[in-house]
Amino acid sequence: MNRIKRRLATKEWQLHLMIAPGVVFLILFSYLPLYGILIAFKEFLPSKGIWASPWVGLKYFDFMMKLPDVWRVTNNTIYIAGLKILLGFPVPIGIALMLNEVRRSFFKKGVQTIIYLPHFLSWVILAGLILDVFSLTGIVNSFLGWFGIEPFYYLGDNRSFPWIIIATDIWKNFGWGTVIYLAALTGIDPALYESSVIDGANRWKQTLHITIPGIVPIIILTAILSLGNVLNAGFEQIFNLYNPLVMDRGDILDTYVYRVAFQETNWSLSTMVGLIKSVVNSVLIIAGYWLAYRITKYRVF
């Protein structure tokens, strides 16, 4: 007690004050709502509130496992989300490295702005655009038509649909990732480049030995965090683009649960699915963190 008093009395209290709003925010919006997890184990009746609703144990876990299509959609989810992570991961790094070499700041800023614009558009708008671009009379089919290729209905086919989802997702988000890496690149000490030039390193060697090692911590951090998205294949995107013809490969956990749970206002089921997703995601993040430490001896926290 005394020690806390003394600490607060000294210069540290300003720092604690500065962190306080963040802590309050976290407690209010991240920790208190954890109480709502109880809904997953109860027959939730809103008029009675969360606490007074009767317990049903693992009924909704059982319910979820018995849903006829749950494994098919889990497969699709991991497939789409996994490829999104795997293919989408190197793109912003490459672009950031290339932009870093551009010396004209006008061009660099211009490209940067243009590529991260789609990040701010909602999927509802982009879906309208994508439906148009890939329609039978859209740009893609018209263009391929010049080479004598028959129009193909890309959004109505089980093979092409997941790839359109993956590609458009990468297109939407790589600009954002690029900005993060560019910020990390500015943190590298210019003295390192200067001394390497004296040692006779060319551009390629500089990239290899200074730039990339300089952003490795950020790369690892984003890689670990992205592991947490293995069960998030993008509800908004798929919900706005899918149709009955591509359900076999395009239907994901979130869209499926949406149809099952929300059409019948089944809160307990959706909470249960959300809880399980969170558990799997945090296990993956923790495993990733541990692996990163074992392999690179690098700690984020």
Partner: peptide
């Protein structure tokens, strides 16, 4: 119906449309 209605409706619509 609550458990399987949505899947059955999916199956039905998919079959007809296919």
């Amino acid at each position: 119906g609550k458990l399987k209605g949505a899947s059955l409706l999916d199956l039905e619509n998919q079959t007809f449309i296919k």
